[in-house]
Amino acid sequence: MTASVFFGCTFIAFGPAIALFLFTIARDPLRVIFLIAGAFFWLCSLLLSSLVWFITVQISNKESSSQQKGLLIFGVVLSVLLQETFRFGYYKLLKKANEGLLMLSAEETMPISIRQLAYVSGLGFGFMSGAFSMVNILADSVGPGTIGIHGDSQHYFLSSAFMTMAIILLHMFWGVVFFDSCEKQHWWSLAVVVISHLLVSCLTFQNPQYVGSLVPTYIIVFLVGLWAFFCAGGSLRNLKLCLTCKDKDFLLANHRPR
């Protein structure tokens, strides 16, 4: 009966990502391409950080636990910085690609806006990082055993799944905020993105106190999500209109002056 754990964890970790992919990405081939490219860029950052990791592990003193711990923290910080660097690189690339796309486009309009690109690439980052952090765990969740013979918490699978979900969502939000800040050249908000990423990564050092890492992470998810919502052009007024189903009137009202 541990197949239920496998499917439960898969749905938790990748449910939102799958839903977003199905309803917003899958219909548009261009978006799929940018999603995959985003995933690739994340992988490149992973490659680079793992190479550095290997070299440092080889030259470090394997017996000293404090050194190994320091190495781990160093690895986390380096990897986060590398990921954000690659996000910036991807942004630069997309800007160039956008110009090319504009040239190719028959309608002389952008086939995809930079905000959409931000969202798509952020989701690409999220997909790949989520997959990397979750797949090994999922492989072991099939059972028949569960974590805990050495006294660890048996909520490991569940909390890893929720953590992965948070990371995927965060990557998406970070992508939106990051690209928006680049567009508007708000460098301080770039710094906030990087710092919140660092913060979330370092929160996992709290484990196995899962509450201690999950609760702050979800607070950050909520805050960054809110920020991303506003960056993407959302507003409280829009939200209210949406929720009260007055959007049709709103559209009409918006169009009338034209």
Binding site: C9, F11, G15, A19, F23, T24, S235, N238, D247
Partner: peptide
């Protein structure tokens, strides 16, 4: 775990569908 997974999946499907249909309004700016 399975129940939570299914709930998360369906909630996100619903929410995403809602947002994507109303994206024009929601992100009007």
């Amino acid at each position: 775990t399975l129940g939570a997974g299914v709930a998360v999946l369906f909630t996100s499907l619903l929410v995403t569908y809602f947002i994507s249909t109303k994206a024009d309004v929601l992100f009007s700016s």
